[in-house]
Design a protein around this nucleic acid. Structure first.
Lengths: 243, 243
DNA sequence: GAATCCTATTTCACTAGATGAAAGCCCACC
DNA sequence: GGTGGGCTTTCATCTAGTGAAATAGGATTC
């Protein structure tokens, strides 16, 4: 990578990454990402998306193909394969998020019922937040479909919650409210979810701005804070009874 | 693995794969797989699992780390990261399985209710079947937790269903029954799920062998076949404009 | 039916970049 | 203070990944 050995005096710039990672692995992962987020995509589009020559993309896609991470549909196009699906499911049964989701699940259901709005759990992904679970509002007009969606931390209620400092003893989780950060007629209420060390996720209520106002807004906020405290309790409490 | 030594003189065997795929990409993917299926794992264990030197494993894990596919927990151990989670969720919203799951979902619920047994959807993964969705039995004694699990096609009811030939016009999906293939006291009833071209998945009822017998077995089988036909109808019928 | 255009696939010479043995480090435990 | 186990870094070696270009395979147009 850009050897650019500086023969004279001081180094030209602080070499950001002297550490070598695997280029092909990176590309294969990016390709996988492109295919999955597009749902179904042809070779040349995939190559263009990732910015590599088609011949190289082809080789990687083939590797992903015969490992079963991808499959080719009726003709030509690539899409998710069974191996990846297996992994995707495993990701929810093990790992740190499994505990979070298990701890949160019952409270999500309850929150959605009492507030009559859709409830989400989000986690941080660099400078973005990703919604990873939901229970939808029972109302006909409701917020739906944000699971898997990624939104910026900057300027959003989730962002503020995910960036919150660890909870000082005796304090309650702080509520963040925001209207129109992503879509103009959506109001978001969000609180951080703590696990003893610090923030590990966020709990959100999302709904139409004209309904989530006044007294309903206050009640939703209170219910949200209470739920966050219960979830934090479930996370810090050692043994897991339910699964 | 175990690349054939650059053997002396004459290349003995017929080179199985003259096609070169990316070794590092393959390894990174395997590493990712190991980490996710184990839930949380340290460097040396991961390296051992995959069969590569720790220094190499470290480089790959780091790459996965800063792409966000993995994270390091409290100290040292690797586990699923937010980027992978985003992908995992996307995999269920797009791609070929999304349609299958969407078409099947309502029928799963109904089947579980009327048969009082747990219902699963499985797809093929090479010589294995992977269960990708479920609705659990309402009974206290029930079959649970096989989502994400992978079982061999050979000797199982799912295997038989997933290997079934395309459905001849006028015929009904064929029922496969099996007891004890995987666990001795479990009976499985399975039918293929068709999408017009051929088998794309399988629908299974799994339950305790002593309960899934006699008249209950017959009724479950009938309900299963009917559900499979309805799902096949849903898969072939609606001309989805969305792309 | 030929011409045109687009995408997928194969080839191949080149060297960037992945590799792993070994050495160094850090911590926990004795 | 010592010892062992896992994590991290270094570095010389050469594999194996790379991409330009040529080829094949459709589809669509004229």
């Amino acid at each position: 990578m850009t050897a650019a050995r500086t023969s004279t005096t001081a180094a030209t710039a602080d070499q950001a990454a002297p550490l070598h990672k695997s280029r092909s692995a990176e590309r294969a992962l990016t390709l996988l990402d492109a295919v999955i987020t597009q749902g179904s995509i042809g070779l040349s589009d995939a190559a263009a998306e990732v910015g590599i020559p088609t011949s190289t993309a082809l080789r990687h896609l083939r590797a992903l193909l015969d490992s079963g991470h991808l499959v080719r549909d009726d003709l030509g196009r690539y899409s998710v394969g069974p191996t990846f699906l297996r992994l995707a499911l495993a990701a929810f049964r093990a790992g740190p998020y499994a505990r979070l989701l298990a701890a949160a699940q019952p409270h999500l259901q309850h929150l959605a019922t009492v507030t009559e709005e859709s409830v989400y759990v989000a986690v941080r992904d660099g400078v973005n937040a990703v919604y990873i679970a939901t229970v939808e509002s029972p109302r006909a007009i409701r917020h739906v479909g944000w699971v898997g969606r990624s939104v910026p931390l900057d300027g959003t209620a989730v962002g503020a919650a995910l960036r919150a400092a660890p909870l000082a003893p005796g304090r309650r989780p702080e509520l963040n409210v925001n209207t129109g950060a992503i879509e103009s007629d959506v109001t978001a209420l969000t609180v951080p979810l703590y696990d003893g060390d610090g923030v590990i996720g966020a709990l959100s209520i999302l709904g139409p701005a004209d309904r989530l106002a006044g007294k309903r807004l206050d009640r939703a906020g209170a219910a949200l804070i209470e739920a966050a405290e219960l979830i934090a309790g479930a996370m810090t409490a050692p043994v897991e009874a339910a699964r």
